[in-house]
Design a protein around this nucleic acid. Structure first.
Length: 217
DNA sequence: ATCCCGAGGG
DNA sequence: CCCTCTGGAT
């Protein structure tokens, strides 16, 4: 009943979940389309409260017209707003893409910074976006990407009690070895989209039911 | 009516 | 803590 014993049982549970999800989604990768770190940054900003599928419908035209940081930094705001409109929050997203690229050009020699601290200085970039860019753009695992799916599934599975993404990330970092941090996020996102949906979770088809606090409560 | 790989401001 | 930003899909 010691606290350490409870932690290791939660660690075993997390690892068992990840083993099953790796078997279920062996080829899961970041589902945003991009050709460079700055394109990944822009696509990730666009992915806020929007499906990746929708993001991938606007980025080909966006990146065709404005392929790199200098181009996006110099792009007319109205053009960017029109191009990203269908992803929602389009004024904020256009302004943040332009603003981040301006800062990248002015302060970071035109290259997307590779540290959490520097990424967080970019407008429209907080931990979720920074974690995605670091993990998939540079192969650097600074934390666990916690989006709406990762938060929902981690809570349903009983691995966190918090609704605060920062606290959820701390809980997951404690339960998983660092090399698996991004594996966890990617697989939970896939499973969250396909099975453990927000509205109608398909518990009958879920291979994690025996480990889940949500269905067993 | 609710949710989608959030972030910033009050 | 709360609220706002926003269109598209279900």
């Amino acid at each position: 009943m010691s606290i350490t014993r409870k932690w290791s049982s939660q660690q075993q549970k997390a690892r068992e979940i990840l083993i099953r999800l790796k078997r279920l989604y062996p080829d899961a990768t970041c589902s945003l389309t991009y050709d460079s770190p700055v394109q990944l940054l822009a696509a990730t900003i666009l992915s806020a409260q929007c499906t990746d599928e929708r993001v991938n419908k606007v980025t080909p035209e966006l990146f065709s017209r404005y392929p790199d940081a200098p181009a996006m930094a110099a792009a007319p705001l109205e053009e960017l707003e029109t191009l990203v409109r269908s992803t929602g929050f389009y004024r904020n997203k256009a302004k943040n893409i332009k603003g981040s690229c301006q800062k990248i050009v002015q302060d970071f020699d035109g290259k997307v910074p590779k540290t959490m601290e520097q990424l967080l200085t970019l407008p429209g970039v907080a931990r979720k976006t920074a974690n995605v860019v670091l993990a998939h753009g540079f192969g650097i695992n600074m934390g666990v990407t916690v989006d709406t799916h990762v938060k929902r599934l981690s809570k349903r599975l009983g691995l966190t009690k918090s609704d605060n993404p920062i606290q959820v990330e701390r809980d997951l970092m404690r339960l998983l070895p660092q090399p698996d941090w991004e594996n966890w996020s990617i697989r939970l996102i896939y499973h969250g989209r396909a099975v453990c949906r927000a509205r109608k979770p398909d518990c009958d088809r879920c291979s994690l039911v025996d480990l889940c606090d949500f269905v067993n409560s």
